[in-house]
Structures are given as C-alpha cells and as structure tokens.
Design a protein around this nucleic acid. Structure first.
Lengths: 248, 248
DNA sequence: CCAGGAAGATACGTATACAATGGCAGCCAG
DNA sequence: CTGGCTGCCATTGTATACGTATCTTCCTGG
C-alpha cells in the first residue's frame, strides 16, 4: 500500500530544463479520468446507493493521495451523486422519494422546454450521432447489459440538451440524468428499464422534422412513462415504524 | 474531557502570524461562514469580476489554512462564481455575453415554469415574508445601496423558487441568481438596477391571488426587462485592440 | 535602443503527518 | 440480565512541507 509510483519525472531527471510547452494538464486530466470512472461506476450501478466510499481505499485503488480523492468526492457531492456526512465519510447517495419526484419534475420542465430549441438547431450530423447513440443503447438493452444501457440513455438525454445551445441548461440536465440513474437503481423495477426501446428513435424523428411541438409532447410522455415505471415506496430504512409493523 | 487546548485570539490586525486558532468541532460551520462571506462579497460586487483570489491571502484573512480555502474555492468554481484556471489560481468569473444569454434563458424557462406551483403552494406566512423582502429591497434601492439591493433581489427570486416545493429546481434557481448578479456587475448600466421597484410587489399580488398564469406572464416580462436593461457588448478583455483605441 | 533569455520569486498542486471525532466493544454496576 | 460507561480503533479533517510551473525582472547581445 506504500508503493508510490514516481512516474511523473521518470525521463526528465537529468535535464531540469524549463519546458515552454508545459504539459500542465497531466494531473488534472488524471483526476478528471478518476472522476469519470467513479461517476460512471455510480451511474452504471456498479456502485450501489448506500455503498461507502472510503478515501483511503479510493486513493489506493487509483494510485493517488487522499487529497485528490477528496476533491473528486466533493465534486460528486455537489452533484448529489455521493453524500458527504460530516465525520463519517462519503457514500453513494440514496435518493429519497421526494428527491426522485423533484428530479423528474425538473426534467419534465427543462427537457420539454428545451425541445423546441433543439428542433430548431439540430443538424444532419447531430441526427446521425443521436441515431448512433440510440442504436448502441438498443443493442446494450438487447444483450442484457443494463448498466451500459442506463449510462447510454443518460448520455443520450444529455447530448440532446447540449444541442439546444444553452450550455447552462445542458449541464443541469446532465446532473439530472445522473441522479435519475441513481433513482432507477433504488426505485426501478428490475425487468423494466428506464427508456423504452424505440422512444428515442421516435423522438429523433420529430426533431429531424423540425416539429418541436410534437417533440415536446413526446418527451413529456417519455419522461412520465419512466417515472411511472418506478415503484416508489418509502423503505423507511432509517426509522422502521415498529408500531405499524407489529400492528399496535 | 480533554480541554487542553486554549483558545487563542484571532488577531486579524496586520502582521499577525498564522496562528492556530481554536479548531474544535465548528470547523465545518466556520468554513460555511467563510464560503458565504466570499459568496456575498462577489454577489454584492465588492469583489469585481476578474479580481484574483489568491489562496494564501484568503487563508490569512480568514485565519485558516489553504486547504480549507481551496475547498471553498472549488465549491464556488462549481457554482460558476469563480473561475479556476490551472496553475494560475482563482479569480471572480467574468461572464461572457453568451453565458449571460444562457443564464437568462434558463431563468426564463425555470422561474416562469415554477410560478404555477408557487401560486398553488404559497401561504399567508410566505406572502408576508416575501413582502418584507421586497420592502427591504426597495429601501436599499432608495438609499442608494446598490450592493444590498442586488443581493436582496437575488434572495427574493431564490426564496420564490423555494416556495415551489421543488428543492432541486430551487437550488438551480439560486445558482442562476448568483450568476445573474455577476452578469449585472459586468453588463449592467450603473443607473439602472436589476429589478424595478414595484415589480416584486406586483408579482406577490398575483401569487397571493393564486393566479399562476398571470404570475408566469409577469415573471417573463420581468426577466425580459432585466435582460433588456443590460448593455451586452463584447469587451475584448483579452486582446484590447490598440489600433482601435488609439485611432489607427 | 530593443529583444531574447535566464534566474529568481511567487503561487499553485500534491503528499504526508497529526489531531480530533464517531463508533464499537468490553467491563462494571444495579 | 440489562443498561450505562469508559477505553481503544478506525477514519476523516486540517495543517504544513515540498515540488513544479509560471511570471517578472534584469542582464546581455545584436
């Protein structure tokens, strides 16, 4: 556990020459990669809600120090993917039923509201890209790779939002999609995945035709369908009501 | 109990050596307070866009170490209030014209979309609270305290969003309002502040009457008015065109 | 007189060490 | 036998030290 790799200055020991072309982004890129790895693991449900994320363990796994891990954890916490409890560390967020409703209401508002803009801005290249994403999602679903399908579905919705041209709202939609993956992990029934097979293709069709109105309505139904497929039951993991359980 | 640690006074006068001041359990609270202090300073334009925020200086001012400052800075960066350029430190974000448009488009969508919910959920106590906030804002505006007025205006909009009951969207609106303050700092004309004097009072009236539709329309006009009052001109902050400046 | 480079200073990024806190288990008293 | 308490352990939170990159300034050459 104490092995620290000194690969950073492996080839520059002798020179010590200040390089004008500073490849400064090395550390930042690595942390970005670690962030994405953890984020993907959460979104793909390889890390289940409630799983504890110890800083030491993560630091060892990724070959970095706790400092960098903490930074990543804080970022994930601000995106609500992990919960940071004050002296007890980080764990994958377990969304409450109320949060689930808020997230889907927000998606309903923002994603539907974005459809007209998307229909106006979309270009043939975008259509091809979206169709490719939808195809890969369908394939993943067909071959039983639920994790991959969920991630691809979230990526599809996020990409769609990006096409609106509003980076702020697109980033927000991205967060909402990530949180939706968590919600699916907790409240989703196993047999029924998030997005139906052909919904995304149909949506692309409306957008390609420039029919923002119909795309908006379709997106609304699409999201409602996902939300309706959830079995949102309060699990009372914190305070099981013994009176109710034992019937007194 | 082990109280072997004596509280050392936090002398903030010049020349004070970075001394370990009492770091018993209120560390989180103190950092929260520091975060709010910096955030307020930015929102109130006491820290102008482009101002550099050196970690050492902040650490010394607030009597903490760079570690804590970094955490706060990262949080502010994720909320887009400060920009973190690798190897060059933090500075107050200078929003671009495009970002300004995105932010106001987002506010248009979300805040207007929230009005019906707010009109449905609002209670007499909330009405009183909002009226009080609007009154304080008006007073600040009348007495020429632009900084205070801007902060109160942002707080008003954020509180309004909270009344919708959707915490996720409310938090998003809060971020948008903070960024709007920055945008006002850069693009706002000095004479014309963000929100008109009686707009907020009129809005409260619609909401109190439960007229979500009219409130939505009014909020839309309100935000459009703010956006229209901006003088969005590209300032070419990076490459000042000397030829143009010196007339050839 | 100007330009280019080198050296020093400054400030950020990372790692590590230390301190404090929450949880757990074993022990004692009622 | 049950309930509370006190000690230890594990883990996080904070601070400091070090390495490195960038920026500034000065010196030298053209």
């Amino acid at each position: 556990m104490n092995q620290r790799q000194s690969m950073t200055d492996a080839g520059e020991s002798g020179g010590a020459k200040p390089r004008r072309l500073g490849k400064n982004g090395d550390g930042a890129e690595r942390h970005e990669a670690i962030y994405r790895t953890i984020s993907d693991a959460i979104i793909e449900h390889r890390l289940k809600p409630g799983a504890r994320l110890r800083e030491d363990a993560l630091a060892e796994v990724f070959g970095t120090s706790r400092t960098g891990v903490r930074k990543i954890l804080q970022r994930l916490a601000l995106e609500q993917l992990v919960t940071l409890t004050p002296r007890r560390g980080a764990s994958v967020t377990r969304p409450t039923a109320e949060e689930a409703k808020d997230v889907f209401d927000a998606r309903q508002m923002v994603e539907c509201g974005l459809m007209p803009e998307v229909a106006r801005h979309i270009k043939p290249d975008d259509v091809r890209e979206l169709r490719d994403m939808a195809r890969r999602e369908r394939e993943a679903l067909k071959s039983g790779e639920q994790s991959r399908a969920i991630k691809l579905s979230a990526a599809f919705h996020e990409r769609l939002a990006q096409l609106s041209g509003n980076a702020t709202l697109a980033a927000f939609v991205g967060q909402l999609c990530s949180r939706s993956s968590l919600i699916l992990a907790v409240y989703g029934s196993s047999g029924h995945l998030g997005c139906e097979s052909h919904d995304h293709d149909d949506l692309i069709g409306f957008l390609e035709a420039g029919d923002g109105e119909r795309a908006t309505a379709f997106m609304g139904r699409h999201l409602k369908a996902i939300e309706a497929s959830l079995s949102i039951v309060e699990e009372e993991q914190e305070a099981p009501d013994l009176h109710e359980i034992f019937g007194v």
